[in-house]
């Protein structure tokens, strides 16, 4: 395990190349990322560490195609993520990466199973859904069972505990078999025991070859990752 911005011994699966990001806060510009270079290899588990406001979540949003950098680029398997034809960015977010948020962000009207399935519905369209529905349903069921939610399919998020909600969110992120799992403080909200359970889930996913980029401020949690990258004031700390 190394604590370096870029691994040297393999072709990166996902990389940020000199990305800058500035937010307008009232009259002032907040320069959140100031030329960040980083990459993650296929099958690698990378933890991005940093204090609050260091730009960790912003970096994750750029890597996931949710936000655009003012300068620099994000590359997935050697290809730039931005500047592609209409609809490609949405396909990237839907099929290449999967998001797990600190506050789960499950849709309250949907059951646990529907929250997972909706992620498969988004890229399939009305007519395509009929073809993939059976397969998606089986996969969602298997994922939820694997994450210990076999009895909670029909429960809506309000009836699930924090840990259960986060596991549903992980299943939702994994349903489309994304190349990279992007997790923003996945253990930030549940209690310590639940946090440990979530890390165990990540560990298992990692063993299965899943590439993971995990943002956390907790060094203990980060210790589970293959590699750690520290952000400080919008830069990678050397």
């Amino acid at each position: 395990m190394t604590d370096s911005p870029t691994p040297s011994n393999a072709k990166p699966q996902l990389a940020a190349r000199g990305v800058h990001k500035t937010y307008r806060m009232g009259d002032a510009d907040l320069h959140v990322l100031r030329g960040v270079d980083m990459s993650v290899r296929a099958g690698e588990w990378l933890a991005v560490l940093g204090a609050s406001g260091s730009g960790k979540s912003t970096l994750l949003h750029l890597l996931g195609g949710l936000d655009r950098p003012e300068k620099g680029d994000v590359e997935f398997e050697g290809q730039p993520v931005f500047g592609k034809p209409w609809g490609e960015l949405e396909r990237y977010r839907s099929l290449r990466v999967g998001f797990v948020f600190q506050f789960y962000h499950l849709l309250p009207e949907l059951s646990a199973l529907e929250n997972v399935l909706i992620s498969a519905m988004v890229p399939s369209g009305v007519f395509g859904w009929g073809k993939v529905k059976k397969d998606a349903r089986e996969r969602a069921t298997a994922l939820l069972q694997r994450l210990g939610l076999g009895e909670r399919f029909k429960h809506r998020p309000t009836r699930l505990s924090g840990g259960e909600r986060q596991r549903v969110a992980i299943a939702r992120a994994l349903i489309n078999r994304p190349a990279v799992l992007l997790a923003d403080e996945p253990t930030g909200n549940p209690d310590a025991e639940t946090g440990r359970q979530i890390i165990d889930v990540f560990r298992e996913l990692h063993r299965g070859g899943q590439t993971i980029v995990m943002v956390t401020h907790d060094r203990t949690v980060a210790a589970a990752a293959d590699r750690r990258l520290v952000l400080e004031a919008g830069r990678v700390k050397e």
Partner: peptide, 16 residues
Amino acid sequence: TRDIGVLRALGASRAG
């Protein structure tokens, strides 16, 4: 609003 953010993160387009 937050659900809209989630759907965009899951790949939903503006038109969607």
